[in-house]
Amino acid sequence: MDADYQLIIVGGGPAGLSAGLYAARARLKALLIEKGAAGGQVLTTDRVDNYPGFPDGISGFELIDTMTAHVDRFGLEKRFAEVVRLDLQGQVKTLFLDNGEQLRAQTVILATGARPRNLDIPGEKEFAGRGVSYCATCDGPFYRDQEIAVVGGGNTAIQEAIHLTRFAARVTVIHRRDELRATKVLQEKAFANDRIDFIWDTRVQAIEGDEDGVTGLHLLGKDGTGSTLPVTGIFILIGVIPNNEMLPLDQLESDEAGFILTDTEMATATSGVYAAGDIRSKRFRQIINAAGEGANAELSAEQYLAGQAEHT
């Protein structure tokens, strides 16, 4: 059974696009499959200030647009489709698409990324898009002069809290610990911003609302004190979970949270299969990591293909 492609990359964020760039330049017969909005989580970032080469910062969308233009320049084949299942065993891997089509590849790079974690509290699903948001860049302008909350204490939460002060009258950051995980530059900015308040050592227990949307939050402090906070919007920015539903986890190794384990060269437990970007099990999820891992995964795939060619 012949393969349709030497390499198929699943996912069109920074990891997938970097892998695609290297593959196109290596003149591999390669395909990048993206299910919808290429760019993934980066798109929801208002401003990327930590990607080298852009001293004035760049919006998440522009960064992805630039990366896409870059792979297009080298003629990478791309396609909008959803991969629903993969069989990664054997020399030829099979990818099953949602339209019933099957694609075969000698190597696969998994760059499916991650998505925002939910709080899993009452009201969250009910009021999604009506006061509950996971994207400050998208929805911030709908909260002009209103009082809103941000849940979380990492880089994303703090960066977006600062962004939201451009619209909202007041932004209250609710964090379950008594200090932020966000990088110092962001902490300094947030503490200096008089439109941002902090509620420490506190969890959100429920989201309340009426037919117009969210009206307030039920909070519970570490010391057991309950309270309510009247807000019209809540931005939930508490980390990510892996986009692994389509992956055959029995053919791969994953960590407790479901992120894919690789060696230092991005190889997974299955030969010819690599993982890069946020789907990889690792400590730090940054755009620059994702891009670097994408390049590394492609180079590993190339080396594997060269080895295969020698044996035939």
Partner: peptide
């Protein structure tokens, strides 16, 4: 100003 909005444009 909405990145995801622009990204689904081609779809």
């Amino acid at each position: 100003w909405c990145g995801p909005c622009k990204a689904i444009g081609p779809v």
